[in-house]
Structure formats: C-alpha cells, structure tokens
C-alpha cells in the first residue's frame, strides 16, 4: 500500500480517538480540528523559525519533532483547560455549536495574523523523516501507543466514570463522580491528542494553513467516530482508517467520489446506528472465532484419527 495513504489513515485514526474521548462521556465536542490546527501551527512555527528545531538542510532532528509534539499537545491541552470549564457546562447540541464556533474563531485568527502566514500559511516545514514510510512507521507506533492508553483508560476509574456520565450524568453525579472534573479531563486529553497529531501532520504535509481547522474537518472527524462506533476505542480507529482512505480509494470513480463519500456518511448511521464496531459485536465475533477454533480442532482430531488410526487404550 501507498505509505502516504497509510499515513493519512493513521492520522485520521488519531483524530477520531480525539473526538472519541469527550464522546465517551457523552460530550459532543467538535473542537478537535481547532486543536489539531493549533498543534500544527506550533510545529510549523518552531521548525521554520527556530534553528535548533529546524535542523540542517531539509531534514530536522527527530528529538525536535518529539519536543514539538509535546509542546503542541501541552499548548492545546492548556487552551482546553482554560475554556473547558465554561464550555463544558453546555449540553448536547449547544456544546457542539460552541465548539464549532471555537474552531471557526481559531480559523479566522490564524487567517488574519501575520506570523501564521495569513491565507497562504507556512511553507517548507522541514522533514524529520526522509521517506513517507518513515512517517507511517512512526505514526503507527504512536497510534499503537495511544490505542493501548485508551484501552487501559477504559479499564481505569476515569474511563468507567466517563462511561457512567455518558449513560446518565445525573446518576453518575449521585454516586459521587465529580462529573465536571471528569468531563474536563476528557476534553483536555482530547485536545492534547489533537495537538500532538497536528504537530506531526504539519511536518508530513510540509505546509500548514488555516484551512486545516475548518468546519468540514469537524464533521469529517465526527463521521469517523459515528461510522466506526463510539462505545469502545476500536470503533473510532477503524472509522478513521476506513473513512480517511475512502476518498482516495474512490479515485477511480472520478468526479463521483465525493458523492459516494456523502452516501457513505448518509447511509452509515441509517444502516449501522451503533457504528461498525460495538462491544457486543466484538464479543459475538470473539465467540464465533472461538467456535471456529473448536471446529478446527475437531477437524484436526478427525484427520489425526484417519492418519494414525483409532487410538488404542
């Protein structure tokens, strides 16, 4: 497979996880592209303006990338912490609209400030990896790490508290969960993840402008999660991988590809209201695989009997 496409898919999966975290506690936040854009801007500015980040020639040192990702994640997380207390008092569609507004405000700011390059953006961001495969490998490791953390999170007190808030916020508060705090933590984690992903994506894309964090991106990332399923971390990952690959895979259909993409987004919720991946589905799949395994063992046993003859007592 084309490494560039793989990289896009992996970034899509990371962003989907960023949308998933607040959604796990029932909070529909569409702010992910805003934090993604901030992260990318941080990395683009650092690596084009400051010599130690820029490295020599066209390549930049890997530790610089890691530092940029940390800084980008921290900045996005801090912003989320600053506004989260206020924004997260809103519920449902109000929170969604407020976060759309946040993304749009950030976009207008980036568009109008001179040091972010205005409408053209920032060009010639140095490359820490010489090949696209290098990026894909690095991002694969990052995604695996984030998936592991998310899977752990679901087992931890915080993850369970998040699920409790999603199912019934009032009941969760009654059993002593500090709902405001848990929601804020999920929001900050989501921003952090989006921010560091942005820093990585800025290097990969080589240029960065205000268009990256737009309403379209908000909706696409949400579609990743809704399509994949928002009950467990695997859903958004699959949704992100599949839907980011789709426009590219549909290239043979030519002009129709965005229409087909729209059809997938339209029919996804209608056909799979829970998303593709659900815990029940996974359990069912597990049982079925186990069943196949036992069946196979049965076949193997019969085969052995046929070859060796019946076992004598």
């Amino acid at each position: 497979m084309d490494a560039g496409l793989l990289e896009q898919m992996l970034i899509g999966a990371l962003l989907a996880l960023s949308v998933y975290l607040p959604l796990r506690c029932g909070q529909l936040s569409l702010a992910t592209p805003g934090f993604f854009a901030i992260g990318g801007t941080v990395a683009a500015l650092l690596s084009t303006r400051i010599p130690i980040f820029a490295g020599t020639g066209a390549t930049s040192p890997l530790p610089a990338l890691l530092l940029e990702m940390t800084l980008a994640g921290l900045l996005a997380g801090l912003l989320a912490l600053a506004i989260g207390g206020t924004v997260l008092r809103l519920r449902g569609i109000y929170l969604a609209i407020a976060t759309i507004a946040l993304v749009e405000i950030l976009r207008v700011i980036t568009l109008n400030l001179s040091f972010t390059g205005g409408a053209l953006g920032i060009f010639g961001i140095p490359q820490p990896f010489t090949t696209t495969a290098g990026y894909a490998g690095f991002t694969l490791v990052l995604l695996a790490l984030v998936c592991w953390l998310c899977a752990r999170l679901e087992q931890l007190r915080l993850g369970r508290a998040m699920a409790a808030i999603r199912d019934d916020e009032l009941a969760a508060a009654c059993v002593g969960i500090d709902t405001a705090q848990v929601k804020l933590q999920a929001f900050v984690l989501s921003a952090l993840l989006a921010g560091l992903t942005g820093a990585l994506a800025a290097h990969f894309l080589n240029s960065w402008n205000a268009k990256v964090g737009s309403f379209d991106a908000s909706i696409t990332t949400l579609a990743f999660v809704v399509f994949g399923g928002s009950r467990t971390w695997l859903g958004p990952v699959i949704g992100g991988l599949v839907l980011s690959a789709l426009p590219e895979l549909l290239r043979p259909v030519g002009d129709l590809r965005l229409i087909v993409f729209g059809l997938v987004i339209l029919l996804g919720p209608v056909l799979f209201p829970q998303g593709l991946i659900t815990p029940q589905g996974l359990q069912g799949l597990g049982h079925r695989l186990l069943g196949y395994g036992q069946q196979l063992r049965g076949y193997g046993h019969k085969l052995l009997v046929r070859v060796n003859g019946p076992r004598r007592p």
Binding site: A223, I259, G262, V264, I265, L266, G268
Partner: peptide, 19 residues
C-alpha cells in the same frame, strides 16, 4: 435512534447535494 446520528446523516445528504 440517537439524534446525533441524524446530524451526521443530514450532513451526508448535504455533501451529496453540494457535490
């Protein structure tokens, strides 16, 4: 279904129309 889903499916309809 959850009203969140209609948000997405209506968006899909919008994407189709625009394209």
């Amino acid at each position: 279904s959850d009203s969140l889903l209609a948000l997405i499916s209506s968006l899909g309809a919008g994407v189709i129309l625009v394209n």
